[in-house]
């Protein structure tokens, strides 16, 4: 998001805070795909990601009076999305005693049936590898590589120290490369 988007967000937030549901609807439209995309890549299941995306915006509405403009609104939304997703992943583990694996939605349905073959295969491979590393590594990679958050914003979003971001990111990258390497039958040593 650029500065113009941020300004538009801020204007809509002022109206939404005063109870203007239409203004909030505009905010939702602007952010829905980004939030959904983040949650889907974090949780791996489309239906649950759809539910959670709605939940994120309902929570955001409730917490709107508490939002302060020092925090970028889009980052604040990701923080709510992250909290709800991790909660879901915890419940899922309790229920299933094991992480989802082959029943993941993300890889197969993400790109739609049309177009791209090699590219889609490659994207799907990355999406699958992502699902096979621990959630704590997955979330930090998504925040850095997809959402392009700074270390400071990542630390804030995850509630960890900025110093921890550096080491956790390095471990996450190493783990993902190893997964991808295993998949491709290469040895990354």
């Amino acid at each position: 998001m650029d500065d113009a988007d941020t300004e538009r967000d801020n204007a809509s937030i002022v109206r939404a805070r005063a109870g203007d549901t239409r203004a909030f609807g505009e905010i939702v439209r602007r952010h829905q795909d980004r939030v959904f995309s983040f949650i889907l890549r974090l949780t791996g299941t489309r239906d649950e990601a759809m539910d959670l995306t709605q939940e994120v915006f309902m929570k955001a509405w409730q917490a709107l009076p508490e939002w302060r403009s020092e925090a970028r609104f889009s980052t604040w939304l990701l923080q709510i999305a992250r909290n709800l997703s991790i909660d879901l992943l915890r419940r899922r583990q309790v229920i299933q005693f094991a992480p989802l694996d082959d029943e993941l939605d993300i890889a197969d349905t993400a790109m739609g049936p049309e177009a791209c073959y090699a590219t889609c295969q490659r994207d799907a491979q990355l999406a699958r590898a992502l699902q096979r590393i621990p959630a704590g590594q997955r979330e930090i990679l998504l925040l850095r590589e997809v959402e392009d958050l700074t270390y400071t914003d990542i630390a804030r979003t995850l509630g960890i120290r900025p110093g921890t971001v550096k080491s956790r990111l390095a471990r996450a990258r190493a783990a993902l490369l190893e997964r991808l390497g295993r998949k491709a039958g290469e040895d990354h040593g």
């Binding site: 439209r29 795909d33 995306t53 994207d123 990355l126």
Partner: peptide, 11 residues
Amino acid sequence: LPQERLGFDLG
């Protein structure tokens, strides 16, 4: 990676 789309008007 292409952005995933929700596919309906959540607003």
